[in-house]
Amino acid sequence: MARYLLLRLLDLVPTVFLVLTLVFIAMRILPGDPALAALGANADGGQLEAFRERMGLNDPLWLQYVHFLWDAVRLDFGNSLMSNIPISTLIANNLPHTVYLTIVSVALGLFIGIPLGLYAATQRNKLPDNALRIYSLIGYSVPDFYLGAILLIVFSLNLGWFPINGAGEGFWDGLHHIFLPALSLALLKSAFLGRLTRTSLLEVLGRDYVRTARAKGAREGRVIFRHGLRNAMLPLSTGIGISILATLSGAVAIELVFNRPGIGRLLISAIQERDYPVIQAGVMMFATFVVLVNLLMDIVYIFIDPRIRMKS
């Protein structure tokens, strides 16, 4: 098992390397001069040249690439061009908020989605099942930033039940601040996970081993949870992984709508200000996040499925 995990971790190296290379190439292809962007239109030729020399932009491309990789390995992303704050500090300040938003919204999505899916599966083609179908349709169709804006207007601005922006201080205040943003992201998640729970569970409940469980004398509750849901967890955990990853794109918009700190908002403002090193670091953070979530899912599979455990 430890060996399997180690191998999976080693698998990540080429992926991260590829991402780094793509980021490097993208940054060199992007239109615009980083020196000009950093120093502004008023800088004279000498200043620009001095900047390029200092940042190593005059080095041959391969040498820039080697420097870039070496810095990335040491997690040294340099400083922001705009604020001159070390990027590692920016990330350390913003990343926890995005991770927190991801956890809370996925948890909400699970708490809403899985019971809905379970109930719909047991009431197949009856009212609850059709209700879930409509709920999912709405969940898929309403964009999260739109829902976020509506929630913000209704519950924060008009009713004043929730704070309007920021992330809050301390646990309870933080929870108070994160509720609406997380809920905005959770609608789609619960719609997706609800449908997935229903489909996976119905598929599993039709299997022969579920009939065996009934023939043993297991009651419906036990059949559904012990034999059904546990087996449905295999496709479901993949869905949860997808749902976690989807939070990234959702967080970009939601952090803007609710004016919350986070990697998404950091990245958006960096793009607006052509703050190349920050964009570079932000894209890498996202890529690393994707890769780590995939690894996490692989670990979850091992715990759920003895067949994978055996092979490793």
Binding site: Y209, R211, N231
Partner: peptide, 9 residues
């Protein structure tokens, strides 16, 4: 082949 739960010993 199909009548036993694959996830239970």
């Amino acid at each position: 082949m199909a009548s036993l739960n694959p996830l239970m010993s």
